[in-house]
């Protein structure tokens, strides 16, 4: 089979390329893609390898974690971590948690992204598995978070996050 490169063939190819680009631009949600990429980076930053004991390395990790959050984040990470209202509190809580744990491994099990109307913030429901090693004890948690992402200085950051679950223990339970 041979194709002769004539003007109609070239015009057709260019047209096809333009249509393809238009379809990609119309269908791909670049904001959603950027938020997913941010969440992947945050999870990677939350993972603390077993050998990391240097306070400077931990301080750098805390600083990197802080950059994923808005100026006034409202966070409820769930037991045993306290509620967080400011970046300073976030720095303190993250620093203490990273220092106390021998290693932290966070794995995303599932995530779902929806947009508020108007499209001001994105709500992500995130299911994660957290494995924390403290001394000889290893605890494994399955947590679901509802995370609100907002755009701040052209970057997507977390404004609010709270621990939630589909199955709720009744208040009266023992």
């Amino acid at each position: 089979m041979t194709i002769r490169l004539s003007t109609p063939v070239l015009v057709g190819a260019v047209l096809l390329g333009l249509i393809g680009a238009a379809v990609v631009l119309a269908t791909v949600d670049f904001d959603a893609w950027a938020i997913r990429r941010q969440s992947v980076r945050l999870i990677a930053t939350l993972n603390k390898p077993a050998g990391e004991k240097n306070p400077l390395a931990i301080a750098l990790r805390v600083r990197r974690i802080r950059d994923f959050f808005a100026q006034q984040p409202v966070l409820q990470p769930g037991d045993p971590l306290p509620a967080i209202q400011t970046r300073e509190e976030l720095t303190a809580v993250a620093g203490q948690a990273l220092l106390a744990a021998e290693s932290i491994r966070v794995r995303v099990l599932d995530r779902e992204l929806t947009w508020t109307k108007p499209r001001m913030e994105a709500l992500m429901r995130l299911a994660v598995e957290v494995v924390v090693q403290e001394g000889s004890e290893t605890s494994q948690l399955l947590r679901v978070y509802e995370v609100a992402w907002i755009r701040e200085e052209s970057r997507w950051v977390i404004a609010r996050a709270h621990s939630t679950d589909s199955i709720r223990r009744p208040a009266a339970s023992e």
Partner: peptide, 13 residues
């Protein structure tokens, strides 16, 4: 089958 976050992981109760 109970939803957790998306379409990959669920509770079964």
């Amino acid at each position: 089958v109970i939803r957790l976050a998306g379409r990959r992981v669920f509770y079964l109760k």
